[in-house]
Design a protein around this nucleic acid. Structure first.
Lengths: 114, 114
DNA sequence: CATAGTGCATCAGTGCCATAATACAGCCAT
DNA sequence: ATGGCTGTATTATGGCACTGATGCACTATG
């Protein structure tokens, strides 16, 4: 969901979520520091902090002050379920409607194109 | 694409585009006036005007000052092609990526749910 | 000409987003 | 203990998009 028009902190949030879902970071793993991640993404550290903040609010990330941010226990599973529900409820229906409206056939939709 | 978080004028634009693609308005038809459409949608007339504006810029709508806005010649076809290209280029790839990432099977995606 | 319906231009207000510069609080290896 | 790394809080600023109220120019109709 790399929509170029979205706010930066939301894009960063999606990048982090994708990394976790793809297994790049597992439960208990130490996430990149705010400053380090900001550097690699060319973003402001405070903007990164804002992205991390939303994960804390959901309890998906645990902060050890002075050490770093860790993926919470069971976060991978909970994140996957939350994202799945959000996708099926909010993302897919309008997409399906557009597919139908535009008369797009499933042959045109290559699932490997991702 | 009724994303509740999007700006109003973009949602209105999508409503209009869908109406045209669904054949509710054909080439040459008179579109609802800015004020009338604003009333039915509970929006501000200026916001509606901004939505219509984007169609004018694309030449999909022709303005007769003092009369109203008409669907341009060939607009239905051009709109369908533009929307199709936009969908395949910008919308579908991230959606497909998310489907793959979340391990969603095609059985869960009911195309009739639209 | 008078009226009522069009779209449109102008100006202003509001809120979110991103950035910045510091400073502070906690942990850890040396 | 000290230096260096964590995240956090504060305040301020600039930019931009969205929304809104008012009034004007235009056209069809009678």
């Amino acid at each position: 969901m790399a929509d170029e028009s979205k706010p930066v902190y939301l894009r960063l949030r999606e990048i982090i979520a994708a990394s976790i879902l793809d297994g790049e970071f597992s439960d208990g793993d130490l996430l990149p520091s705010v400053r380090a991640f900001a550097a690699t993404q060319g973003a402001n550290p405070l903007t990164v902090a804002k992205a991390y903040q939303s994960f804390q609010d959901d309890g998906l990330v645990v902060v050890k002050r002075g050490v770093g941010m860790f993926v919470a226990d069971g976060a991978t599973r909970r994140l996957r379920e939350a994202e799945r529900e959000r996708f099926l409820d909010s993302v897919w229906p309008p997409v399906a409607a557009q597919i139908k409206r535009l008369g797009i056939r499933l042959d045109d939709l290559d699932l490997a194109k991702a």
